[in-house]
Amino acid sequence: MQVQDLLKKTDKLPNVPDVVRELIQLLSDPNVKYSDISERVARDQTISLKVLRVVNSAYFGLSRKISSIDEATVLLGMDKLKTLVIASGFSNSVTKVDGINLTEFWQDSFRVAELSQWFAKRTPLVEADEAFTVGIVHNIGRLLLHLTEPEIAQDIQTLVSNRKAGRVKAELDLLGFTSQDAGKALMDLWKFPSTIGDAVKFHKRPFSDDEPQALPCILNLACYLNACIRNDRDYDLVREGFPAAVAKAAGLSEGIVYELDDALIIGDELRLLLD
């Protein structure tokens, strides 16, 4: 089987709203205007309503109710609005997937995105917006696999659950490629920036390239911390197992290991987008 065989099943691919794709393209434009963003967001009623719900939640603690995307843009700022729109757009891209609990899947993706953004703000080599986006889509290849080849996806899951193979090996044995390869192919199909697709592809093995890139390294670190949170790992063990070589390649200082307690308590307000 080839990765492209999955992409040919167009009726089963995730349906990401145009506004999200446009927004991701705009991320590289430092001169983008507030009006450009709010106009695009307002076109999608579902995303607009979800964003306004989060904006009006107790988390933001605004003094009055916000009723329009224009107001939300001004009060929240561009970065936060883009974060909410991207998270909402992807989490609404599919409604049911055999073998995947979508609520847990997107909560996991949101946390990786927040952690990626946290690391990116501490290195000059990665843009925080791009890090957040790649965190949201880092596991979308697995979603694609379950949508297009649910029986094979279940066989892979069984091997992993029974500890007969790691996920990468199981995917290579049964597919001939990994879900990261599939994710990269989907990013290319959607014409996302190549840096995002490359980070999705290489984040599990950031040193498989001769010259490791900072963005997949950041994503690798975010996935590491996410696993620590999910498994409720003791803080001392988190620091001991922290991949220092990956952090160095991401442009992070050696002292980052002493800041990890801040990352481990990052909020999960984005879960409101899943209701």
Rank of each mutant, 00 (worst) to 15 (best):
M1W: 09
L273M: 04
A58K: 08
V160H: 11
S28C: 05
G176K: 02
R64L: 14
P212A: 15
I69W: 07
A182S: 15
I69D: 10
L49E: 10
G135D: 02
S179H: 11
L225C: 11
V200A: 04
P14K: 10
S68W: 05
I156R: 04
S38R: 09
K248A: 15
L175Q: 10
C223S: 15
D98V: 09
A222V: 12
L76H: 06
S109R: 11
R64N: 14
G77N: 03
A249G: 03
H146D: 09
G141P: 00
L23G: 15
P193S: 02
R21T: 13
D11M: 03
D209R: 06
A250I: 01
M78V: 04
D11A: 12
A165W: 04
L13S: 14
N162F: 00
L172G: 11
I218C: 09
D5R: 08
T195P: 00
E254P: 00
V126K: 07
V20S: 09
S48C: 00
I140H: 06
V54F: 02
R239W: 01
T95K: 04
L26G: 13
L159C: 03
R271H: 07
V200M: 04
A42C: 01
S68I: 06
T103H: 03
G255D: 15
A227L: 15
L144W: 06
L147E: 08
H146C: 07
L62C: 11
K96E: 13
G89I: 06
G99K: 04
K96P: 00
E114R: 10
S179W: 07
G166R: 13
A222P: 02
A113W: 09
T123S: 05
A131E: 12
I47V: 07
G99L: 02
Y34L: 13
N162T: 13
Y224S: 14
K184C: 15
V16R: 11
W118T: 12
F105Y: 09
L49G: 01
L52P: 00
